[in-house]
Nucleic acid binder design. Structure first.
Length: 473
RNA sequence: GCCCCCAUCGUCUAGCGGCCCAGGACGCGACCCUUUCAAGGUCGAGAUCGCGGGUUCGAAUCCCGCUGGGGGUACCA
């Protein structure tokens, strides 16, 4: 294949939805795979709804995901001259025509049609206007839209993912290219730009498939070659309905804020609809690039499985180098400890976490002393009669040298044997005292990282509290 | 309403006529490991391939119908 040119063309009317992120990813992978060019184009022809901040947000999200573009971003709002020139050409060639009906008239006709149980179609009135009449009325200042003269024969769309789809001419009417205010409409700008930018493959969501015959007709009218189409199945929510904020997160930014890694989201999204074909699950962008092909994309819609994303995130999280981990964790909050301690702590807690938020939360115990203790833990181990051995453990730990987990464990085992109790009976109250919870990394490794002073203070404070010495129960 | 697309374990999927009484992954269960919780390891349950017709010696794989789901039907993108 000669170097393909693909594009991702989001509309800045919302943040980057995961469906859009996946479309961007596939385009990116395809371009990378074949040594092509990935173009970014912002479709902001809807001046009412487009917002600059949203464009920035989309660009941010893409950068975060690692989907950098080779060209652009181009803004359609800045390319009016190109569209108008193309419109002029189509009009001159008779491939498009002026239609003078007002939006109100069309609306009324549509209403009437529906009321009569008929399918509304544009009457085609403008089609039969003579060129002279059209020119005269336009020159007289009458408002008009530009419509494309659609062909009378069926249009077949050959799709790389969905297969063949045929559209009958009666289902397609002469759609509007340019609004009466002179602004071009989406279908028109897309095609003009795709031609102008030399796009060879159009990879986008299936929601665009019904629009594709219009585009095919336009490409032909424009005298351009038809690009290869690849329409991706929708990404649905867990309930099979369209994925939206109702399902929790739906935008890339939201997943970022929820502590997901960009490589995990990308990996997960890649697998929604595409399969590497060799039972692979975990892949880097590079690995995906090497394996990517349009042929291995399935046509059916898929559901967004939050559980699997979380699992994948947990998997990839384990592989993050300590340095980067701390940098990633910073926005989520880190206790005031030196970097070395934080790195050791993170390493200790990592396998118990699946998101950055979880890591951040679990690292809180290296900051403030716990003030709350889990109820089940207090019920089981918050008994005054257990405090004697907790104090005994504390006093052993006070003198252990070196202050390392192996030595501590040895001392604790000795103490347990002397007292005739299990190591667990000694460790659990200590764990509760240290973390407020019954779940934590191995006790002595944790204490080693936490520091002797902190550990002893917490154990003694806990014993005091349980024995009622400080009032609180 | 009309048009278009889709349909394999709960979920993501492998499968492109015989290798499949269907393989992998998430999730779920059990066990092992173990000072707790995870991680990890092992094993297991889980789809008569939506339904009904064809085609074929042979169909999850091809064709048709139905059902279900999704999308489109704008001077939105």
């Amino acid at each position: 294949m000669t170097a393909p040119r693909v594009r991702f063309a989001p509309s800045p009317t919302g943040s980057l939805h995961v469906g859009g992120a996946r479309t961007a990813l596939y385009n990116w992978l395809f371009a990378r795979r074949h040594g092509g060019t990935f173009v970014l184009r912002i479709e902001d022809t809807d001046v009412e709804r487009s917002r600059r901040e949203l464009t920035d947000q989309i660009l941010d999200a893409m950068t975060w995901l690692g989907l950098t573009w080779d060209e652009g971003p181009y803004f359609q709002s800045e390319r009016s001259a190109i569209y108008l020139a193309a419109a002029g050409r189509l009009l001159a060639e008779g491939k498009a025509y002026r239609a003078f009906e007002t939006a109100e008239e069309l609306e009324a006709a549509r209403k009437a049609g529906e009321a009569g149980g008929k399918v509304y179609r544009y009457s085609g009135a403008g089609r039969s206007l003579s060129r002279e009449e059209s020119d005269t009325r336009a020159a007289a200042g009458e408002r008009f839209v530009l419509r494309l003269r659609m062909p009378d024969e069926p249009i077949v769309v050959q799709d790389a993912v969905q297969g063949r789809a045929e559209f009958l001419p009666e289902a397609l009417d002469d759609f509007i290219l340019v609004r009466s205010d002179g602004n071009p409409v989406y279908h028109f700008t897309v095609c003009v730009d795709d031609v102008e930018m030399g796009i060879t493959h159009v990879i986008r969501g299936v929601d665009h498939l019904p629009n594709t015959p219009k585009h095919v007709a336009l490409f032909r009218a424009l005298g351009a070659e038809i690009p290869v189409f690849a329409h991706l199945g929708m990404i649905l929510g867990p309930d099979g309905k369209k994925l939206s904020k109702r399902h929790g997160a739906a935008g890339a930014e939201e997943f970022r804020a929820a502590g997901f890694l960009p490589e995990a989201l990308a990996n997960f999204l890649a697998l929604l609809g595409w399969s590497p074909g060799e039972d692979r699950e975990r892949m880097s962008l590079e690995e995906m690039t090497a394996l990517f092909s349009l042929e291995r994309i399935g046509p059916s819609p898929s559901r967004f499985d939050h559980e699997k994303l979380t699992w994948l995130n947990g998997q990839l999280l384990q592989a993050v180098p300590p340095r980067r981990l701390l940098a990633l964790l910073a926005p989520f909050g880190l206790p005031a400890r030196d970097e070395g301690t934080l790195e050791r702590a993170a390493r200790l807690h990592l396998s118990r976490c699946r998101t950055l938020v979880e890591v951040s939360q679990s690292l809180r115990i290296y900051g403030d002393d716990p003030s709350e203790f889990e109820a089940a833990g207090l019920k089981k181990f918050g008994k005054p009669e257990l405090m004697k051995s907790l104090r005994a453990l504390a006093s052993r730990l006070a003198s252990v040298e070196p202050f390392a987990h192996a030595e501590m464990e040895e001392a604790a085992r000795a103490l347990a044997t002397e007292a005739g109790v299990s190591l667990g009976a000694l460790a659990q109250p200590a764990r509760l005292a240290l973390t407020g919870s019954l779940a934590s990394p191995p006790l002595f490794e944790m204490i080693e990282v936490m520091g002797r002073e902190t550990a002893l203070r917490r154990m003694l404070a806990f014993a005091d509290r349980i024995e009622g010495r400080t009032g609180a129960s």
